[in-house]
Design a protein around this nucleic acid. Structure first.
Lengths: 155, 155
DNA sequence: GTAGGTGCAAACGCTTTGCATCTGG
DNA sequence: CCAGATGCAAAGCGTTTGCACCTAC
């Protein structure tokens, strides 16, 4: 019997996108490849405009629409996170492989739900910066009742 | 010597606005009064569009521009908070007299800074809703080093 | 060959602004 | 009176969409 060694390395974003594309009847194109590559090479949060400007350097003809459509696609594929910021721009962030998460704690049944919220994390950084504070760790907990316990209590 | 008794009651929003207006060379107008009144009578978060619709019921001729300009004014006066939400609308919330606050805890000197962040609060509600969770209380704590302790540690 | 993608420009939806007119102090 | 406010319509601005042409599969 042959042992298949499954090297559980992080799959590159390009790989993950390819898998998503072929799995959903979409095509892999030159433009999408450029956008993905530039996006993953660059810093974290990018607006469509910023990304378009970067991509245009290596793929001059590319249009805004393609960038927007690709970003939508990435979001739908769960490979990017889209969030509106106070400056009026929507920025995109590539998904991490592992992520910090916080907790929803049910005081009814003791069940703990995990969640992660990049926007809260981001805002926490802003709060820290405003207060001239260097954060080493943080904890966000919400206490209350899970859906099931909530419904039980209403009876 | 005459003693001035300073009754520290909560001033109404209208009062606080009036004070701001007269203190900054602005005029008090029928339209502004309507907007303020309707806004404070209604629920918490309103988009300009929602507010305009409400105000139009009692002040038919009012235009969007006036609503927008008044909301800007309120924000600048510190009487309202403006925040962009994921639905693409900017919503406004009247400032509270007292507000929930969270903590920045310095592990260097034990000093505790308080902060409040409406956006984080709002996002917590979104997280709860997404998880079918009814929140009764929450706690957000950030641990780290205050500006002073940060600088000491670098030496 | 054909479903799907691209680029362009026009359309969209929310917000801001220019301008003529009006009004509070 | 006149600085500031209003209402309207037009302009802005980020994003989406319609359409003719193109390309990966």
């Amino acid at each position: 019997m042959k042992m298949v060694i499954n090297i559980k390395s992080k799959r590159s974003l390009a790989d993950r996108l390819s898998a998503y594309l072929s799995g959903h009847g979409f095509k892999s194109t030159r433009q999408r490849d450029s956008i993905i590559r530039i996006f993953s090479e660059s810093g974290r949060h990018l607006s469509a405009d910023e990304l378009h400007a970067l991509v245009k350097k290596t793929a001059p003809g590319i249009g805004y629409a393609t960038v927007y459509r690709t970003l939508k696609l990435l979001s739908e594929a769960g490979l990017a996170h889209e969030s509106r910021f106070e400056d009026g721009f929507t920025r995109y962030e590539l998904s991490e492989t592992t992520a910090h998460h916080d907790h929803l704690i049910c005081t009814g049944c003791g069940h703990i739900l995990e969640f992660e919220n990049k926007e809260i994390e981001q805002l926490q950084k802003v709060v820290a910066r405003k207060n001239d504070f260097h954060v080493t760790s943080h904890k966000l907990e919400m206490y209350g009742f899970c859906g099931e316990c909530s419904r039980k209590r209403k009876k």
